[in-house]
């Protein structure tokens, strides 16, 4: 396991909504009020090797963004351990932690909300490397120009404000800001979702180019399976806070194992299918406040009734190896 860049072991992230004073008072009088807990990420194991592109796929509310934030350290996990280059993050010194945080950068979904509207591009990109002592303040302009060129922005625009750019250019600014501190690992949270089709292709190409030039490792979070398939070496599918399947990208798309993955792939609109009969996965995505018992997917699963002993309803399926490098959490595999 010497090549692993990042390892998550049994990571959970819970968000708790504490009762306010009125609620606590009402409870003391016998009202059945409870503190609400969202299990955004529920006992997830994930290893990301150096140079690998891992795609993290799931629908809204499945915890994929929360997991991404735990990975870069924007959220502290409620439970579990995080290893960076084989070293437990909890046991790291402050300096080591800071070095790790610089190495792992995040690119956010919304190119409008994630840039400070009152900063010039020069400061958005150049602030962090100066603060962290990567460059001297007097070299800032030259350094920013270099980074802007790398992501395909004209350095002459460095004195502009974010609102003077188009969506695609803003996405590039977000990427440049992350690259400015010389990271090895990028977490891209729906980085192309807000972009038009023709612009999306340009930004995806930029990701591919940067990976080759800078030898980057990506965790690519997206709901767009087409994008993930194109970019990723390995794909992780999440449903309601749990990983339900992980596999090398090609295998996952040709022979999905978990019923949820199968359903998801069947739903993806494709250019090659004409006038198809749409069949829907039935039901809604359940609320993570009150997830179904057993397998989270069982109320929507077409196979749940065929598993003996009502197991899907009562027992949580564990992520088990089903082939080389392939894991799936489903009772059908037993």
């Amino acid at each position: 396991m010497s090549t692993s860049l990042l390892e998550l072991k049994n990571i959970s992230k819970r968000f708790e909504k504490k009762l306010d004073i009125a609620g606590r008072f009402a409870r003391s009088l016998g009202a059945g009020l409870k503190e609400e807990t969202v299990h955004a990420v529920d006992h997830v194991d994930l290893t990301i090797n150096k140079g690998e592109v891992v795609g993290l796929v799931g629908e809204s509310g499945c915890g994929k963004s929360t997991l991404g934030r735990v990975v870069v350290g924007l959220h502290q996990q409620s439970e579990g351990e995080k290893f960076w280059r084989g070293k437990n993050v909890a046991a790291m010194t402050a300096d080591e932690k800071r070095a790790m945080q610089l190495e792992a950068q995040m690119i956010f979904q919304d190119p409008y909300a994630s840039l400070n509207p009152r900063y010039r591009v020069e400061n958005i990109i150049g602030e962090a490397p100066v603060v962290h002592g990567i460059i001297n303040a007097k070299d800032k302009s030259a350094y920013v120009a270099e980074v802007m060129q790398r992501v395909g922005l004209d350095p002459a625009l460095s004195r502009r404000f974010p609102h003077q750019f188009s969506g695609g250019q803003r996405a590039r600014i977000g990427i440049a800001r992350a690259l400015a501190v010389k990271p090895n690992f990028l977490v891209c949270d729906e980085a192309v979702a807000a972009l038009d089709v023709s612009i999306q292709a340009q930004v995806l190409n930029l990701f591919i180019k940067l990976r080759e030039e800078l030898n980057l490792t990506y965790l690519f979070i997206s709901h767009d399976l087409g994008v993930v398939r194109h970019l990723s070496d390995r794909v992780v599918i999440m449903y309601l806070g749990r990983v339900v399947e992980t596999a090398p990208a090609d295998e996952l798309f040709t022979q999905p194992n978990h019923p949820y993955t199968q359903g998801l792939l069947a739903e993806v609109p494709s250019l090659t299918v004409r006038k198809k009969d749409f069949v829907a996965i039935k039901g809604e995505i359940p609320s993570p406040l009150n997830p179904p018992t057993g397998c989270h997917f069982h109320p929507r699963c077409p196979h749940a009734a065929s598993v003996p002993g009502n197991k899907c309803k009562t027992e949580q399926p564990l992520l088990k190896q089903i082939a080389v490098n392939r894991f799936s959490a489903c009772h059908l595999n037993q």
Binding site: S198, Q202, I208, R229, H230
Partner: peptide, 19 residues
């Protein structure tokens, strides 16, 4: 420029410029 029409992992064919 649709990813599924391109060879996996290779740069996508793109339309240069913007609207």
């Amino acid at each position: 420029s649709v990813p599924s029409r391109n060879v996996k992992g290779r740069p996508l064919k793109q339309i240069p410029g913007m609207t």
